[in-house]
């Protein structure tokens, strides 16, 4: 039997994919299977005891979990909303008003995206400081009273959101700019000849045509919201005051390394992952329903 040329190419193909596939299977897929299995036990290391779905039942009946879920959704929704809106506005100014130095503005506003999140959050923490922070100093200098930024549940959450908006607004600006540039200019020209105002143009031309961009921004915001929420909350507030900023990722971390309950932390991870996955899936479905392409 002779091995054909295309079979040989296929064999080479599998060989070339092997290192990447090995890493993906071994360190992405397998850990999730292991986590699923591990979440059915209690205890740690060699002393595991099978408990079935107990970890999940305990999870769904614990008010701490529901609090975390609520806090995470609040943080992600509000920060994505503000950051997406600001990013869209800024992109709209840059693209449609013929602003000069557009690339310069874009680069500067984008800067936070490359800054190490843990480091930036540390700096923000000092800026938020009630006595020594420059934010309160600025407020004092214009005759206003300083704020206990991280002191009360509401203001702590707002401070977290402020930092996340700082991280993501430039990134959203870049994505929206690229989406807006794809819309042909003559759409707007013929609309303004027909007498459409600027806000009508945004509402009736821009928004329907950038649905895919909006969905992309939302999915990415969701992801970065989950990832960044840990860094920001752990460093700024540690989840306080009164667990008002204990986001899911932080609860998972604390469950594993303060409560030493790895199985439960794995159960939590899986629940969170399902949540993340189904939300981005639903966003995708929504896009399929309302977006009919760029004509």
């Amino acid at each position: 039997m002779k091995i054909s040329y295309s079979d040989r190419l296929s064999a080479t193909g599998y060989l070339f994919v092997l290192p990447a596939a090995l890493v993906m299977i071994l360190f992405t897929l397998y850990p999730f299977i292991l986590a699923l299995w591990n979440s059915l036990f209690t205890g740690f290391a060699q002393n595991l005891q099978y408990v079935g779905l107990q970890n999940y039942i305990r999870l769904f009946t614990s008010s701490r979990f529901w609090n975390s879920l609520f806090v995470t959704i609040l943080f992600t929704a509000v920060s994505s909303g503000i950051s997406g809106f600001l990013g869209f506005l800024a992109a709209n100014w840059l693209v449609s008003r013929g602003v000069r130095f557009g690339q310069f503005f874009t680069a500067i506003i984008f800067l936070p995206y490359v800054v190490t999140p843990a480091i930036a959050t540390l700096v923000w923490q000092y800026m938020f400081d009630r006595r020594f922070g420059i934010l309160n100093a600025a407020l004092n200098s214009v005759g206003l009273n300083g704020v206990a930024w991280l002191g009360s549940p509401v203001s702590a959450m707002l401070s977290l959101i402020l930092v996340q908006v700082w991280f993501t607004v430039g990134y959203n600006l870049v994505i929206f700019s690229s989406g807006l540039q794809a819309i042909p200019k003559d759409y707007y020209e013929s609309a303004s000849i027909d007498g459409a105002t600027e806000s009508q143009q945004v509402r009736l031309i821009t928004l329907p045509l950038i649905v895919p961009t909006v969905v992309l921004v939302l999915v990415l915001s969701l992801l970065s919201g989950f990832v960044n929420s840990f860094v920001i909350a752990q460093i700024l507030t540690g989840g306080g005051p009164f667990r008002a900023t204990e986001v899911l990722m932080l609860l998972i971390y604390k469950t594993a390394f303060e409560g030493f309950d790895i199985p439960r932390a794995n159960a939590l991870t899986l629940v969170m992952f399902l949540l993340l996955f189904s939300t981005s899936y639903m966003l995708q479905k929504w896009q399929d329903r309302v977006y009919h392409g760029l004509y």
Binding site: A21, P31, F230
Partner: peptide, 20 residues
Amino acid sequence: MFVGGILIPPAIRAIPLYTM
């Protein structure tokens, strides 16, 4: 499989990976 991997950054799978 590659595309699916994008949705799972290292921070999200930290605890399962750590377990392993």
